[in-house]
Design a protein around this nucleic acid. Structure first.
Length: 114
DNA sequence: CTATTGACGACAT
DNA sequence: CATGTCGCCAATA
């Protein structure tokens, strides 16, 4: 299936993810908010799963909002390995100091992360 | 158009 | 803290 054009939504998502600097992470939710659909975290993950520009986008830097790693097209283990390699500390599939990586804005449920 | 699905989120128990 | 349930969104069949 030659898909030359991507949906507007996918373009946005991939663009955001592509900008994530090395050693930093973002949540699906944050990306969803950045794309203008705060509740479309699922759709964000969906877009990344298709992963049109595979190596161009650091998809492994996108994680769940509860501190878990989430999924990865090539296996969650691979994702964890990559993150650790970038200096992210992970314990039992959970990100340590996860709170620290979050944008301090719009986190009303930050208490669950303490 | 409807139904199904999926790298998710939030809340209840 | 673990599990279950519902909700939300976009892509695909």
């Amino acid at each position: 299936m030659t898909q030359k054009k991507l949906s507007k939504f996918e373009i946005k998502v991939l663009a955001k993810v592509k900008k994530i600097p090395r050693g930093k992470i973002r949540t699906y939710k944050e990306i969803a908010i950045a794309t203008g659909r705060p509740k479309a975290a699922r759709a964000v993950g969906n877009a990344l799963n298709k992963n049109p520009w595979a190596p161009k986008v650091p998809c492994h830097r996108v994680v769940k909002s509860n501190g878990e790693i989430g999924g990865y097209a090539r296996g969650a283990k691979k994702k964890i390995a990559l993150l650790k390699k970038e200096g992210i500390k992970i314990k039992r599939s959970k990100i340590l100091n996860f709170n620290k990586y979050l944008a301090k804005k719009n986190l009303k449920f930050q208490k669950i992360l303490e």
